[in-house]
Amino acid sequence: MIIENKKIEDKNLTWILRCPTKFDAEELSKLRVKIDGETENLDREPGENLLTQEDFEKIILEDAEAERSVFLLAEAEGKIVGFTRLAGNNLKRFRHKSEFGICILKEYWGYGIGRVLLENVLMCADSSGIEKISLTVVETNTKAIQLYKKYGFAEEGLLIKDRIHKDGNYYNTVIMGRISGK
């Protein structure tokens, strides 16, 4: 799915919301590794489950052609500062739902980028007939959990001792879902 570019002016930052092109693939690959190293909120350590430039090129092409997937990025000050991906499922039993996640450079937290990415993902999901969106979030990421709840997500479960962070402690993962009004 492709959306039109949007200029966003919010919280003293002007940025562009757009779908990526194959020319963004290299920057996205590097950005993902950097973001993974900035926070414990994501599932990966830097360099784990690496997506190469070629991997991103394939994902960008597939998502552009897919009816129930969308890949959006935030571009500020001439660089990509965050992205989100709503990934549809092609299995017949799960075609009604998609999964998504958001990644934003730490220096751009607090500018409302996550909120705008989420709002646009939800618009795309609703317009394409997706009935359920699922996500997981580490239990200590309370700001994200509050944001998701504000937009209709409910806690569906808790995975106990699901992950180990650099501090050696175990953390729980919250499973959340949003069901459309259909």
Rank of each mutant, 00 (worst) to 15 (best):
K97N: 12
N41V: 09
I160S: 07
K30E: 11
L117W: 03
I80C: 15
G88F: 00
K132V: 05
E54C: 01
R178I: 01
M1P: 00
K106D: 07
G88C: 09
F94R: 15
D24P: 06
G157V: 03
E155Y: 00
A87D: 11
F83E: 09
I145C: 07
G177K: 02
G129Q: 02
G101D: 11
V81P: 00
I160Q: 08
D162R: 06
K92Q: 13
S29P: 01
L17E: 04
A125D: 02
G37M: 09
E67N: 06
F100E: 01
P20T: 08
I145N: 10
G157Y: 05
W15M: 03
L73F: 10
A76V: 12
Y151C: 08
S180C: 09
L72E: 01
T136H: 07
S98M: 06
N172P: 01
D55G: 10
G101N: 13
I80F: 14
L13Q: 03
E99H: 11
A74L: 11
K149Y: 11
K79P: 05
I179G: 00
E155G: 02
M123E: 15
E107D: 15
G37V: 06
E99R: 11
T39I: 10
E45A: 11
I130D: 00
A25V: 10
A74P: 06
K6V: 05
D10H: 14
A64Q: 15
R85N: 14
D167W: 07
Q146C: 11
V116C: 02
L117K: 05
C103V: 05
K106A: 13
A76F: 13
V137W: 01
E107R: 10
E156K: 08
E45T: 08
A74V: 13
Y108G: 02
E40H: 12
R68I: 03
G114W: 09
N120C: 12
Q53M: 10
W109C: 04
R85E: 14
E67G: 00
S134P: 00
V116G: 05
T140V: 12
L61T: 15
E119K: 13
L72A: 08
L73D: 01
G114E: 09
C19L: 09
V121E: 06
R32V: 08
A144L: 13
S98F: 04
Q146V: 13
D43F: 14
I130A: 04
T84G: 14
S128K: 01
